[in-house]
């Protein structure tokens, strides 16, 4: 399914419960229209990975995910030869000539596809998600350059494999380190930040069906106040949604100092952050009542 305009993207994302603003819709549309990778950066838990999943579902594509971590290498990201199977093949060859065996063991049958190669060789619509690229080592970025600019992979024994159909590529990063200029130059850039209370309210309502509208609005505003305290880890959208679910499960229909104090652990996960929130938000409320 092709995307026709930013407004179209926005509508379709809304249909899968992802509420996009102008910037998100336009950037996603451009990524699809220009066939360029999309680098999404922002603090943890603002919906970066969710965006990739939503894009996959609005384009009826399969999501191929490459989760990055320290020590990720070519063999885990791109492809690997199945050594054990090759060894068996050589042992089973018996008196077959070496050249025949040689051609045989470097063929499709012995190739283990990893996410990058899978995404490139697929002929159906694909969204390739390269998650948390900042966690991977700098060398992985070098590996990605060829894949992301030309959508091709070179395997010495098989030759160059070019994408039959360009996948939509989404890279996410928490900005724990600065990515290389070369990689950034090849990507479209989208910075996702914490949403405005109004948008967050709508997100909560979309994600937690059955929540009261005023409670959702109140929740979003309280979270916005919390984010402005100097916390070690400000609450993410995912945590706001969890908080909404918690309140719903406990049957609390209003969010006052007492309710916040009882459920603060859902949004703040550092002891000093909780202390601070208690002092600044909850205590004042108790005094006022």
């Amino acid at each position: 399914m092709t995307l026709s305009s930013p407004a179209d993207v926005r509508e379709r994302l809304a249909a899968v419960d992802y509420l996009a603003d102008d910037a998100i819709a336009t950037t996603v549309y451009l990524a699809a229209a220009l066939g360029k990778p999309l680098l999404v950066e922002g603090p943890a838990g603002v919906g970066k990975t969710e965006l990739a999943k939503a894009v996959a579902s609005i384009t009826d594509a399969r999501l191929v995910r490459l989760q990055c971590y320290e020590g990720l290498d070519e063999a885990r990201a791109l492809y690997e030869w199945n050594y054990k199977k090759q060894l068996l093949r050589i042992q089973a060859a018996g008196d077959q000539s070496w050249s025949a065996t040689h051609d045989d063991i470097f063929s499709e049958e012995f190739l283990l596809e990893r996410p990058l190669l899978t995404a490139i060789r697929r002929t159906d619509p694909t969204v390739l998600l390269i998650d948390e690229i900042d966690k991977a080592d700098v060398e992985v970025e070098g590996l990605l350059l060829e894949v992301l600019s030309d959508f091709q992979v070179t395997i010495p024994e098989l030759g160059t494999i070019t994408a039959a159909r360009r996948p939509i590529v989404v890279l996410t990063s928490n900005a724990t380190r600065e990515l290389s200029e070369a990689l950034k130059r090849r990507c479209l850039y989208l910075h996702l930040d914490y949403p405005s209370p109004e948008r967050e309210r709508d997100i909560v309502r979309a994600r937690v069906p059955g929540i009261d509208e005023t409670l959702a609005a109140r929740l979003a505003q309280v979270v916005a106040v919390l984010r402005e305290l100097e916390l070690k880890k400000p609450p993410s959208i995912a945590e706001t949604v969890d908080w909404a679910r918690t309140l719903l499960a406990l049957g609390l229909d209003r969010l006052d100092g007492e309710a916040i104090a009882a459920t603060l652990g859902v949004v703040l996960k550092h002891h000093s952050d909780q202390e601070r929130a208690r002092k600044e938000v909850v205590a004042g409320d108790a005094a006022a009542r």
Binding site: S5, P6, D22, A23, A25, T26, T27, Y29, L30, A33, L34, K36, L39, E41, A175, K184, R185, C187, L188, Y189, L190, H191
Partner: peptide, 29 residues
């Protein structure tokens, strides 16, 4: 890239134009 992006969007939409420029030219928040 920015010029390509401009060709793909509706230029009368100012916020789309802003987003298109931002996506192609600004790579640091």
């Amino acid at each position: 890239d920015a010029v390509h992006a401009l060709a793909a969007i509706d230029l009368a939409e100012r916020e789309s134009l802003r987003a298109a420029y931002a996506a192609t030219l600004v790579k640091r928040q």
